[in-house]
Design a protein around this nucleic acid. Sequence first.
DNA 1: GCCAATAATGAGACTAATGTCAATATTGAG
DNA 2: CTCAATATTGACATTAGTCTCATTATTGGC
Lengths: 211, 211
Amino acid sequence: MLLPVTKERREPRTRGYRKKERTRRQLIEAGLRVLAEKGQGLTVSDVVAEAEVSNGTFYNYFTDREELLEALAAQSVLALAAAAAKEPVEDPARRFALATARVLLHARADETWARVMLRLTSLRSRTDVDMSRYMREDLAEGFAQGRFDTGPDDAALDQVAGLVLMTIRRMVDGKARRDAPQQAVQRALRALGLDAAEAAELAAEAVAAQS
Amino acid sequence: MLLPVTKERREPRTRGYRKKERTRRQLIEAGLRVLAEKGQGLTVSDVVAEAEVSNGTFYNYFTDREELLEALAAQSVLALAAAAAKEPVEDPARRFALATARVLLHARADETWARVMLRLTSLRSRTDVDMSRYMREDLAEGFAQGRFDTGPDDAALDQVAGLVLMTIRRMVDGKARRDAPQQAVQRALRALGLDAAEAAELAAEAVAAQS
DNA sequence: GCCAATAATGAGACTAATGTCAATATTGAG
DNA sequence: CTCAATATTGACATTAGTCTCATTATTGGC
């Protein structure tokens, strides 16, 4: 069946789509700032004040407070996934170092995101974010290739994820040394079985690789 | 100057002191359960319902919700301090293993406490709890005596505290293997520089030592 | 620029929580 | 057992938050 050859406009659909997108972005960004500041107990009132829109506008975008929280968690996970994205690097150890360094440097660069991650990771919940999901694959491959002496078992994941989270926390607190990300990557590599010299080398390289 | 020889009753002071103590304990314990369940957004209404006292009674004990949260944090820190208390053991590595094992086993035995710790450790705040405070001393001594190859620097503390917290989290989630505490202690010891064999031995011993 | 479609507004109904207090019940020393 | 001291109660005033909706303002395709 031949389709009629029309313009086939995909995007617009509605009249005010431009403003709609802008307002939604405002609400999400304001929501992230408020979540970073106040935690999951944030109020709709806080968010609309921060976003500088009226109370009623909020409910044009989210059915309730809970739906906003889900959107914020989704948004943050997206940022995490982007930061931890696999690079086309052969050696799994090097790849793991790069991903970990990128997550830590991203946390330093975007404090709001970092605070949100800490808020969402505090305890199991529907809006939880699990760092270790993004490590499992690299760990498994590194183990298979004999680069790591430990598989992607719970204890190893806990150790690395815990180290990353505590490092982020320390950075957010303003108590981290300048080289905290590099130290953390180095310790993570050692925990996975690399010897001290190689861990130091890969960590330095990984941090340096982020322009 | 001679003191008059009187009974010198220290404790009672007021009429209803017995009931007072009991009610306070009820409120604290109810508060811990609610905090474990609902987090820092807990309401006074929740707590008094859980404690089975009237709303007004709450305000005989705490000026406001915030003061309860502080009391709960203090209570939890006390339990942590007790669990992490130094044993009269010479070797700092062994002592550290014992304290860490005791904290983890305590978390397993008292799930409410474990959940509260996770809630209070999520992010810096007035009601925050910092695990690493309780490790610093052992780490410093272990390093001084050449047992650990790392001092009580931030990165080491982050690594060990992160591992302990993630392990507690996994236990609370019901996703931990039976040997999670022992694994965690072993990994912590290795992170501090002990070789694999000794770390395994000390970890096994430390976990076994808790009747 | 027009104007139908669409988004934004904010007053207000409703709900839930906080903190107060006069009245009532309980405690325990003598 | 008595009763003054003390603790408990729950109704209530207040505050804060959520969500709705009739009205007003804005958008953007033509």
